[in-house]
Write a protein that binds this DNA or RNA. Sequence first.
DNA 1: TATAAAATTGTAATGATTACAAATTTAGAT
DNA 2: ATCTAAATTTGTAATCATTACAATTTTATA
Lengths: 135, 135
Amino acid sequence: MDFATHLTSNNIKPSLQRIKIFEYLYENRDHPTVETIYSDLVGAIPTLSKTTVYNTLKIFIDNGITHTVTIEDNEVRYDAIMEEHAHFKCNDCGNVFDVEIDVSGLNFKEIKSFKVEKTNIYLKGKCNKCLNKIN
Amino acid sequence: MDFATHLTSNNIKPSLQRIKIFEYLYENRDHPTVETIYSDLVGAIPTLSKTTVYNTLKIFIDNGITHTVTIEDNEVRYDAIMEEHAHFKCNDCGNVFDVEIDVSGLNFKEIKSFKVEKTNIYLKGKCNKCLNKIN
DNA sequence: TATAAAATTGTAATGATTACAAATTTAGAT
DNA sequence: ATCTAAATTTGTAATCATTACAATTTTATA
């Protein structure tokens, strides 16, 4: 994956900040928050500003190469994987995992007259690691 | 539905504010925000404070008679219907509708070792009314 | 009725996000 | 290579939802 090219082909000029932020999102599949992205990247880009992270993510979203993952009321997470998938959040460790999903089995009643454009699914529970942890 | 009894049997002392807020939630199935609840009730309870709405909803949630509906990043909605169901948000009018759903058809891979405690589903698209609207 | 506990309220604090203007960088023309 | 305009980045201040907290009011009980 050539990140600069990916940005360019989605009408986003590939500045250093944009490349690094997208690369970070694409490599770190843990659905980071703005805070995490900023603090993990400010070492490599010392001039980085949190406003830039916000601006950049907004551009990514507007151009369809990133989406938000909304599970908790109080944290917005970001995800650069655009293929349809669900999320699993562990109530113990708080990590969010990707989950492959087959939506075709879903059976909705009463929305025949509605036009569904997007189906969002997230699960909550305990992850493998936390289940096996000794408390 | 006797709201006071419902509160009592869930270990919540049925004050006027609590009864009215729960009643509002139960009757208004449009998943209101704190702002909406407050402004719709302050007429009937002139002394009502927004803090009370927050406090009360927290109590409802802690005692399992209300849950939050998280669809957008920037708005938290509340719902007193605890039976499993999904939500549909219209991208046009912004209304959130309840949707009956059969989760049993869902087919997850790779989470065999995870313990799923709750499955959340929401759809986005256009509702009946907005589809038929002349723009 | 007096007293203690619980509930409600208002105000101030917090924290994430956005607005905005200044500074920096980039791209194109000369 | 240099100049200029446009785009991008940055820092600070403003906004807005939510929470903390202390004071007031209400409720329950002795």
